[in-house]
Design a protein around this nucleic acid. Structure first.
Lengths: 318, 318
DNA sequence: CTGTTAGCGCGTTCAC
DNA sequence: GTGAACGCGCTAACAG
């Protein structure tokens, strides 16, 4: 910048004004621009922010694994909001390690991110209290905070599963199978299984398979409807039903939790979990704090949408 | 930091030394730590880097859409390498707009990223020359640079398709169908179709469908083998073959270009494109430049792996 | 080992 | 409209 000023024969302030688009004599501005070109000068945002006491205009996203398609869609939703404010997004994985999570978060705080969006790995996040008190935004995602009082957005996995089962019950089904991972697979899986059990109240709620539907269908008193609790499981169930010629006989509602670009399963009734919308909601919450909102911790529940497309509306065949 | 120094009754340099882990008298260090706790002090990395003339320790990733699962896996690979160097990753989408691409890139350059990983949207990137000349790393991904001379990593889509077809030809197939999007769907699709045509030399290379396999199978002289050029198309083809009872009759090789967590298609022979490995390779290339390597532009070709799992090894049935 | 001083690159006062 | 000075938070160089 000094060099630019020297070459253009103006002072530093004039260069600064040109760079920041403030009113400057056209002739001088042209000289400055020429010097910028020749010298390959590039404005240093961080240095400016330092002097200006402006923020870093960046936020951090932390989850277990950034290659997770669900997180990728979430990230995109966040970006849509952040972009409007020219805020950059940093992302990092915890690999499921609470120590690594803390390390990653503190590194981001050292970079003076204005806020943090966290899909938590560890259980104790009390070490973030200081930074929150100092004005850094913090929003928990998909898992309510336990050891710190902060904003939170959650996908209603349980409610989604319940809606699926209630939809099937409303169409007369009584023997409804759950196909998908058990509670050991994580929070979402556990919640969906719980939602299934809640909605099955009064019925046989134990028609549960961890992955393979065929044994259930081959048993006595086979289910007349199936709820599949994950995208990939949904595809497996579709294949099994096709193979057995039951795709127009056994009702089926799936969960669409990973964005597969819409190319898949046109006719299957699904419960759609919109990761992108979740990201937008989380970002809105975060920026309201960055903007100074100081009320109590809020919880936003992102409700999934049941989209009837045929397979979930089949009536029971005994 | 000034406040911490005052509270601990030491100078700024002592606080700096404590924060940076340089040798300091234990008693003083304890005082400093106490003051840090009480005041909720957090080190400012950017300010330190400014004085130290150190880099920002960050790199930028730019692609059309960060919610793309392929990009997410790529991002993860990059992170694995970047993390070893405590380098943070910024990511942003171009939405397919060259103007937005330039905007996003220049914003990142304003943040003084040490390097850029670009899955290009626009055609002209000559505007990046200045920054490359000034030492910023730049690696193109999946699409060779045209208007700038820089490093590049590419997935060998064409070679992958060719390998699939050659695998089928080696098993005696002569009528092999291509199912997948046409060249208008983008670079990868066009390359895969080209690879198919190359490897089909001397045979009927026009058994091409943009998505639906059924009409081809219903025609006269139906194909004895199918190559599906995308993950989701592969799933569709599997379903169609199952439904028609041809899953053990018609040979099938698919492309596994999106990481579906391994839960899908266990028995289908695939050509695996490892986005994670591509990300690692790209990051290695980038950091070698950041470290001062100054040789000519390099091109790294990431070859996909054909994984035989049964469906690709079926022999032709006329 | 510790304190003092200067200045990284920039934006913001002020006078002019 | 323009330029000179000052300082953002921090670290490097030096002297003690």
């Amino acid at each position: 910048m000094k060099d630019v000023a020297a070459m253009a024969g103006v002072s530093l302030s004039t260069v600064s004004r040109v760079v920041n688009g403030q009113p400057v004599d056209a002739a001088l501005a042209a000289k400055v621009h020429r010097a910028v070109e020749l010298l390959g000068y590039r404005h240093n945002y961080a240095a400016g922010a330092l002097r200006r006491s402006g923020g870093s205009a960046s936020i951090g996203l932390v989850c277990e694994d950034i290659s997770d398609p669900f997180f990728a869609a979430f990230h995109r939703g966040v970006e849509q909001i952040a972009r409007e404010r020219s805020v950059a997004t940093l992302a990092a994985s915890t690999d499921g390690s609470p120590d690594r999570e803390r390390d990653v978060l503190e590194r981001m705080l050292g970079r003076r991110v204005e806020g943090l969006l966290l899909i938590p790995t560890g259980k104790d996040h009390s070490y973030l209290r200081r930074d929150v008190a100092n004005g850094t935004g913090l929003v928990f995602v998909n898992r309510p905070p336990k050891t710190i009082d902060t904003d939170c957005v959650v996908t209603d996995h349980r409610g989604g599963a319940r809606a699926a089962i209630e939809h099937l019950r409303a169409h007369g089904h009584r023997r409804i199978a759950y196909v998908g991972p058990g509670p050991e697979a994580g929070f979402a899986a556990a919640e969906r299984l719980a939602g299934y059990r809640e909605a099955m109240a009064g019925l046989d709620e134990d028609i549960v398979s961890r992955g393979d539907l065929q044994p259930l269908l081959a048993g006595e008193e086979p289910p007349t409807a199936v709820f599949s609790s994950q995208n990939l499981v949904t595809i497996e169930v579709m294949r099994t039903l096709f193979r057995l010629g039951l795709d127009r006989v056994v009702a089926h509602v799936g969960v669409d939790d990973i964005p597969l670009r819409g190319a898949i399963e046109p006719p299957v009734t699904i419960v759609a979990h919109e990761a992108l919308m979740l990201g937008r909601a989380a970002a809105e919450l975060l920026f309201s704090r960055v903007d100074g909102f100081d009320g109590r911790a809020r919880e936003v529940v992102s409700a999934p949408t049941l989209i009837p497309r045929g397979t979930g509306e089949l009536l029971p065949v005994s």
